[in-house]
Structure formats: C-alpha cells, structure tokens
C-alpha cells in the first residue's frame, strides 16, 4: 500500500512537471512592452560599437541600435537594460531568454541563422566589416605569408578563429593560434609580444590600435580574410519581434535616403501633416495608413526612432565618423546612392 502511494505521488509530480512545460505562445515583443524595458545584449568592450564610458554609460553604434529598438518598442530610448556578453556567451543568452536581442557586432552566417544551427534570426546588416590582421610595423611582415609558423592571438568562440584557419589552410602554411576568451586578453597578449600578429574584425583592430600608446607602430595588413556583415539578432521562430527589428533598421536607412534627420524630423512631420499629396512620406512617418500597427508597433514608430537616434548616417558619424575616436571610412557602409550597399525596401 505504501509503495503504491509513493508511486502515485511521484507519478503525479512527474505529470505536474509535464504540465508546467506546456507551450506558451507569446511573442517576445509583447513581453518587452509589458516589461516596458528592452534587455539588449552588447559587448561593452569595443570602442565605437559598444563601450562602457567613464561616466558609466554605454556608447557606440550597437548601443544606438538598442536605443532605436527601445524607442520603437516602448516609446523611450532610455528604457534599455544593457547586458555585456562575451562572444561565447551571447547565443546562449538569447536562447535562454536572458536578453531580448543581441546588438553585439555579431556576424551573420548560415549556421547561426538556421534552425539546425544556432537558431537565430538576423535583422538587416548594420555594419559591413571584414577580418584583418594587425602586426608591429618593425616586424617587416607585410602579408599573410609572412606569418607562417608564427603565433597569432585570436579570440575564442568567434568566426575569426575559423576564418584564420581557413586562410592558412588555403595557402597550406602552418601557424599557431593562441586563443583567449576575450578581445581584451587578445589585445594584451599581442601588445605584450606573445604573438606576432592579432586577428579580429578590421573595425576592432582599428579600435584596439587607437588605445595603444603609439598607434603608428602597428599596421593593419591589406589582406581581408572574410566578409563580416554585422547585424542585430534575436531568437528564431518569433516573427513579430524579428519583423519589428528588421523594419526599425530599415527606417534608419530609409530616413538617410530621404534626408530625414534628428534636427529636421519635426519639420518633416509638420510638412507631411499639411500636405496630403506627400503619400510616401505620410506613410513613412505614420501620418497615414497602419504600417506600424501591422508590425505590432505604434504607427509613428519611425518618428520616435529618428527623434531618439537620428538616421543611420548620423549614428555612424557620431561613433565611427572622421571626428570620432575610432574613425573608419564609410566605404561599403554608405547608402546605395553614394556607392555603398545599405538600401531599404519601400515602406508600403
């Protein structure tokens, strides 16, 4: 009898366990709105992208993207909680729901996007980068062949590790990877002379070099080892959130195409309200139609986004422009009318 009771008790507990794991089909976007705050996964260690400033605030292009999302989702660009994540932690953090989304210089590739891989979904690319190599100027190394049999400092858990390997396999030369967990340690290992070269995305190399005592003693080699399109990411299978993210990014690009800036947004809004014949502008700014509503956002989400961060070009110039601490030429990152690759589909 006792055994039977015990058996019943454990069975009911097991069944209870099953019941608690039943499907809850709520979009993360609704959760963000309910919480009235966006939890954004960032790096926090890359000047120009996301960097913890001395006043305790995060700054950078990735951070401004978080602000744009928060402005669109909850109507306030300051309602963001930033979570600094290492390269290796970031996907698990999205998977487990510790963060709503990543805006953390993450390269888009097939494995990460697919349901059989990391199971993420990517928003449009916000920065086109490429992997490079940095060496000391006096080392007389001027291309990748000069690094044969040398040790190279690399961060673990990134595509960089795979790319450097592919590059050396392609020229059939051996090398020694010294693998660290963090970019900080990679930089330290390189500057202390453990490795002949360090490898990372060229934007990160530029940022690292800007922090060295004498940046001129280091050169970034011409070899570009890979395409690194960096994009925000969220958990796959949540169309509502991924669509909203996609069109917030497009709104930044589209605003630049149309010349709408943080300074003239109110003027443009007034213009749209007064002139009923400006159909595309009225739709874009939510004066007419229900584009925002279709995404589960307010119809005037574009206005809120541009008020918060300005358009894509403004964000870029603020953090990576010629007057910033980490100047990187725009080249590929121009909008398509100026020879770059950023283009927004129509807001129809």
């Amino acid at each position: 009898m006792r055994r039977f009771l015990v058996g019943m008790a454990s069975m009911s507990l097991l069944l209870g366990g099953c019941a608690t794991t039943s499907e809850v089909n709520q979009s993360r976007l609704d959760l963000i709105k309910e919480r009235n705050e966006l939890v954004c996964g960032v790096s926090g260690k890359i000047p120009g992208f996301s960097f913890l400033e001395s006043d305790g605030r995060y700054q950078g292009i990735d951070v401004d993207i978080c602000k744009a999302f928060a402005a669109a989702f909850v109507g306030n660009p300051d309602k963001v909680q930033y979570r600094p994540l290492t390269a290796a932690e970031r996907f698990t953090a999205v998977r487990t729901g510790e963060v709503d989304l990543l805006s953390r210089n993450t390269t888009v590739n097939l494995s990460r996007d697919s349901s059989g891989g990391n199971g993420l979904t990517f928003a449009p690319v916000i920065f086109h980068d490429g992997q490079g190599l940095m060496v000391k100027r006096n080392s007389r190394i001027n291309n990748i062949n000069g690094l044969a049999r040398k040790s190279i400092c690399v961060g673990s858990g990134t595509t960089t590790e795979q790319n450097i390997n592919d590059a050396f396999e392609a020229i059939s030369l051996p090398y020694t990877p010294i693998k660290y967990q963090d970019l900080d340690q990679v930089i330290q290992g390189y500057s202390q002379g453990r490795c002949a070269a360090m490898t990372s995305d060229r934007s990160q190399l530029a940022a690292a070099r800007s922090s060295f005592a004498s940046p001129k003693d280091h050169i970034i080699l011409e070899d570009v080892l890979s395409k690194e399109p960096l994009a925000p990411a969220s958990l796959g299978g949540d169309q509502k959130l991924s669509d909203a993210m996609r069109w917030v990014i497009y709104s930044l690009i589209s605003a630049e195409e149309q010349g709408i800036t943080k300074d003239n947004i109110d003027e443009k809004l007034k213009m749209a309200k007064e002139n009923s014949q400006l159909k595309p502008l009225r739709r874009f700014l939510g004066v007419e139609g229900d584009l925002g509503e279709k995404l589960g956002l307010d119809n005037d989400f574009v206005v809120k986004v541009i008020r918060a961060t300005g358009n894509y070009g403004e964000i870029y110039d603020r953090h990576l422009g010629p007057d910033s601490d980490v100047p990187i030429p725009r080249s590929l990152n121009e909008i398509y009318t100026k020879g770059g690759v950023h283009i927004s589909p129509p807001f129809n």
Binding site: A87, A88, F91, S111, R112, G117, N118, G119, C153, S156, G157, T158, E161, Q162, I178, K179, Y180, Q181, Q185, G189, R194
Partner: peptide, 21 residues
C-alpha cells in the same frame, strides 16, 4: 586556463559549442 590562452578541455569545449551550436 582559458583566461591565459591555454587550450584545456573547457577552452576547446567553448570553441566547439560556438561552432556547432
């Protein structure tokens, strides 16, 4: 070990996990 760049089981596991998902 991963903090000082030594390829122990955890460091390699880390790489394997990110590569394979």
């Amino acid at each position: 070990a991963i903090a000082v760049g030594y390829a122990d089981i955890y460091a390699i596991g880390d790489t394997v996990i990110t590569q394979t998902g």
